[in-house]
Simulated assay, not measured.
Amino acid sequence: MNVVARVEGPGELPRGKPWNLPGALVVRTVAGAAAAAPVEGARVRFGRGRPEDPDKPADVTVGADDKKISRQHGLLVHRQGWWYLSNTGKLPIEVGGYVLRGDGESVPLRAGVTSVLITTPAGRHHVVELFVNGGDGALPPPLFGQHTAPGHVWPLSDRERLVLTVLGQEYLRNNPHAQPIARNQAATQLAELRPEDDWNVRKMDRVVEAVRLRLSRKGVFGLVEADLPQPIGNLLSHNLLTELIVRTPSLTRSDLMVLEDDG
């Protein structure tokens, strides 16, 4: 199914359908925007190409002057009630702290705004903003005159901070391909750091689950199975660590000092 609405250049989006439909997708770059209704099979493509290109068209242009950006670099498809993003280009796509490669993998998008980043070897950063309309069908209004909101920090107990620092040490070290370390490895490291606490995988999992559920009740999306389509894999832990490290400074590099503690 083709995109049903498109605008060129920066500026405010037009009012009316499909922009304001609940579940609709809006894709925005500095070059323009496109939207598609939440219909099975609907798709939006973004990249260096243009809509009228006969070979590899892109519904939204990004990186028009950068040959490192593929003409079709990303694809969004609506299926079974979700919008899925996949990488169809040559460079990786970073979405929500997750690195998406052109290997057929796709990630589901939550309601609200998701920023996508494509970084070239020369250090250029190209941003694509994805917006999935929530149930009210309302696009976020401009907030030109509003004061900047202060950053939020989630409170963590010393025990929770220790477990999550061990589990998320790759994120704290700014590894560009960060993933939670293996649960067995994390439990072993915890046992070495704090042998008096008799750590094991089950005890560690209970601590992580308690934090996930607490933040989920506070409105953080993607921390419980009901938020995500199957298969989930390690997305629950990834989303939790992304929330605590990337989106909020609840865990910082200074927390890595605990890994040097001999206990």
Rank of each mutant, 00 (worst) to 15 (best):
G96H: 09
I69E: 09
S106F: 11
T120I: 04
E94V: 15
R79L: 13
K90H: 14
A36Y: 04
I93K: 02
V77H: 10
D66R: 10
P57L: 10
E52T: 15
S115W: 05
H73T: 02
G97S: 12
R48S: 07
N87F: 07
W82I: 03
L76E: 00
L21F: 01
L75C: 07
G97Y: 12
A33I: 00
G102K: 02
P14T: 01
Q80S: 14
R124A: 13
F131G: 00
A111W: 06
G47Y: 10
I93V: 13
R45S: 11
V107A: 00
D66C: 06
I118W: 04
R45L: 15
P10N: 05
L25Y: 03
V77S: 07
A36L: 08
K67N: 10
R79I: 07
A122Y: 05
A58N: 05
H73L: 03
W83V: 00
P18G: 09
R110C: 02
G123Q: 08
G11W: 02
V77K: 08
D55Q: 14
P108Y: 04
V95P: 06
A122R: 12
H126F: 14
D53Y: 09
V30Q: 12
G74H: 10
G74E: 11
G11R: 00
A33N: 03
D55I: 15
A31E: 15
P38I: 13
Q80A: 15
R101G: 06
G123L: 06
G104V: 12
P57K: 12
I118A: 02
S70N: 06
W82T: 05
I69K: 07
A24C: 04
I69C: 10
Y98R: 15
V107C: 00
I93N: 05
N20G: 10
V99E: 07
R79H: 15
A37T: 03
T29W: 02
L109N: 06
D53Q: 12
L109V: 11
A58E: 03
L75Q: 12
L85E: 11
G112W: 08
P54Q: 04
S86L: 11
V132A: 04
V77W: 03
K90Q: 14
P54W: 06
A64P: 02
W82M: 01
P18M: 12
P57D: 08
L25A: 06
E94Y: 14
A111M: 07
T119F: 00
V107Y: 01
P38Q: 08
L117I: 12
T61A: 08
S106W: 13
H126T: 08
V26W: 02
V107G: 00
V95K: 01
W19K: 00
E12F: 01
P14E: 00
G9I: 05
L25V: 05
A36V: 15
I93M: 09
S106A: 15
V26Y: 01
P108M: 03
Y84N: 10
G11V: 04
Y98W: 11
